[in-house]
Structures are given as structure tokens and as C-alpha cells.
């Protein structure tokens, strides 16, 4: 029996050998023809849409049910605390006043989230690059990074307030603190991902530390760095909303503040409308980074090849 397995393995190996030889005679156009057909790509596109769509319908149905019956049945709370989806949409986005104030809130939150993310990226990548330069730097700074990650923001609000004031600067600070960890760890991991043979090439030609960083380590780290960006992007939206809970000075009410104001007036539909916008912001930022990542590393990175 083991004989049979052995034989079939050999013939399989043979087959790939011949394929290999044959491939080298292929023209460029032939190689391109090996790429998946447009039809199967369309099927993949379709199946990528259907799954989330089904979940969406289920979600809206469940929401509706919670409004009409579920809140009372499960939590013994009145249904108006969770308005129906159509009420939320109508009251939040079809009434000009509510829409204007929600979108204004979204604007400030988006601003803080994006500015915060930009700062996080610059600071985070710089920290990671510095840490990667020597093992001892990494070892001595890493514990503090973990500690930073573990600090409950609430407990340092007074300190942040005294340093950065009660306005937008403090929100940015919170945003950076909350979202920086994944960028640093992913970049750090990425910078060590070039293999020893590739490093040898640079050693052979006596490449400087800088050349090695710019031409080898950073490019090979790009997929990991973009993973970090994507996680941090989501966190920076959370950071922006958390930050504005504590630092409300100035006439820049973010979506979190607007939501809070509606809740105090018992306008639940608009409160949930704000929540939808905040979630939407997170999704958009996530998707944008996914797309940018694909543009930057998709043409060479193995894992961005879609299995069928």
C-alpha cells in the first residue's frame, strides 16, 4: 500500500516538473491568461456581497422585533427606548435640523479621528523603527508600551486636561494613546520579516543601516504595517468618540457629544442615528485602508492572492 502512495507521489512530482519547464516557454500573455477568469471573479464578487446582505436583513429584522416586542419581553423595558429602524432613519436623517447637527458632529469626530490616525501613524512607525534598531532598545521600551495600552483613560483625564487643555488637543491625545499599539507592534514585526538570505545580500555589498532599513526592512514590512494601520484606524474612531466624552471645551461637538445631548432630551431615535454614523465612519476608514493596502502591496504580496 505504501508502495502505491510512493509511486503516485513520484508521478505527481514529475508532472509539476514538466509544467515548470513548459511555463518557461510561455509568453507574457500566456501567463496572464492563467489569472482567474472574469466570470469566476464575478461569482466571487457576488458571494462576497450576499453573505453580508443576509446578515444585514437578519439584523434589521431582529432590531425591529426588539422594538415591537423584544425590549418588553426580555428586559422589561418600554419599546420606545429602542426606536424601530425606519423611525431612526426618518428622525435622524430626513429631519433637516437633526441631520444637520448629526452631520456636524460626524464632521468633528472624523476630523479628530483622521488627524489622530495621521499622528498615530507617524509616531507609531517612528517608535517601531527606533525600537528595531537595537534589541536592547526594544527590550527596554516594550514594557512601557504595554503599560500605555493598559492605562484606563478615565484615570488620567485630569492629567491630560492639565497638559493639553479641555478641547481638541486632548481628544487627539486620547486618540493616539488608544490606537498606537497595533501600529507599533505590527511595524516592529514587519521590520524583522525579511529573511536571512535577503539580509545577506545587503551585507555582501556593505549596505549601511539606513539603506537596509529603506530598501529591505520597510518594504518587506509594508503588509504588516498596513494591517496595523487598518486596526488602528478603527481604534482611532473609538478614540475620537471616547475623547470627546471627557474633553468638551470649544464649539466642536463630536458625534458622541451630539448623541449624548439627544439622549438627555430622551430623543432616542436621533441617539441611535448618531451611533449608526459613528459605526459607518469606522467601516469606511477600515475599507479605505484595506483598499490602499491592496494598491500598495497587492501586486507583490502572496497573501493578497485570493484563493478560489
Amino acid at each position: 500500500m505504501s508502495d502505491g502512495v510512493g509511486t503516485s507521489m513520484t508521478s505527481a512530482e514529475h508532472a509539476t516538473d514538466h509544467l515548470d519547464v513548459a511555463l518557461e516557454h510561455y509568453s507574457v500573455a500566456d501567463i496572464e491568461a492563467v489569472q482567474p477568469h472574469a466570470a469566476s471573479a464575478r461569482t466571487a464578487e457576488w458571494s462576497r456581497l450576499v453573505g453580508p446582505l443576509v446578515i444585514f436583513v437578519l439584523f434589521v429584522a431582529a432590531w425591529h422585533y426588539m422594538h415591537t416586542d423584544g425590549m418588553r419581553r426580555f428586559f422589561d423595558k418600554p419599546g420606545f427606548l429602542l426606536p424601530a429602524p425606519e423611525t431612526v432613519l426618518h428622525d435622524s436623517f430626513l429631519k433637516p435640523l437633526a441631520r444637520a447637527s448629526l452631520l456636524n458632529g460626524l464632521k468633528w469626530t472624523t476630523l479628530v479621528a483622521l488627524l489622530g490616525l495621521a499622528m498615530t501613524i507617524v509616531i507609531g512607525v517612528s517608535i517601531a523603527v527606533t525600537m528595531s534598531q537595537a534589541k536592547w532598545v526594544e527590550r527596554s521600551t516594550y514594557p512601557y508600551l504595554v503599560a500605555l495600552q493598559a492605562i484606563p483613560i478615565l484615570s488620567v483625564v485630569p492629567i491630560i486636561n492639565s497638559v493639553f487643555g479641555g478641547g481638541i488637543n486632548s481628544r487627539l491625545f486620547v486618540c493616539v494613546v488608544i490606537s498606537i499599539f497595533p501600529i507599533v507592534t505590527n511595524t516592529l514585526f514587519g521590520l524583522t520579516s525579511a529573511d536571512a538570505g535577503q539580509h545577506d545580500l545587503f551585507t555582501l555589498r556593505g549596505a549601511s543601516r539606513w539603506t537596509r532599513l529603506v530598501k529591505l526592512q520597510l518594504p518587506s514590512a509594508m503588509p504588516a504595517i498596513f494591517t496595523g494601520f487598518r486596526i488602528s484606524a478603527g481604534l482611532s474612531v473609538i478614540g475620537a468618540v471616547v475623547g470627546e466624552q471627557f474633553f468638551r471645551k470649544g464649539s466642536k461637538p463630536g458625534i458622541g457629544i451630539v448623541m449624548e445631548q439627544y439622549r438627555q432630551k430622551n430623543l432616542y431615535a436621533q441617539t441611535y442615528g448618531g451611533l449608526l454614523l459613528a459605526a459607518l465612519l469606522g467601516i469606511v476608514v477600515f475599507l479605505v485602508f484595506g483598499r490602499v493596502s491592496k494598491l500598495v502591496v497587492g501586486h507583490w504580496h502572496e497573501s493578497s492572492r485570493k484563493p478560489d
Binding site: 529573511d195 538570505g197 545577506d200 545580500l201 529591505l216 518594504p219 518587506s220 502591496v297 507583490w300 504580496h301
Partner: peptide
């Protein structure tokens, strides 16, 4: 080298 060690990017 034994491996091609090309830079993937």
C-alpha cells in the same frame, strides 16, 4: 545562493 532570495516587492 541556494534560494533565489529575490525581493518580493
Amino acid at each position: 545562493f541556494q534560494d533565489p532570495t529575490l525581493l518580493q516587492w
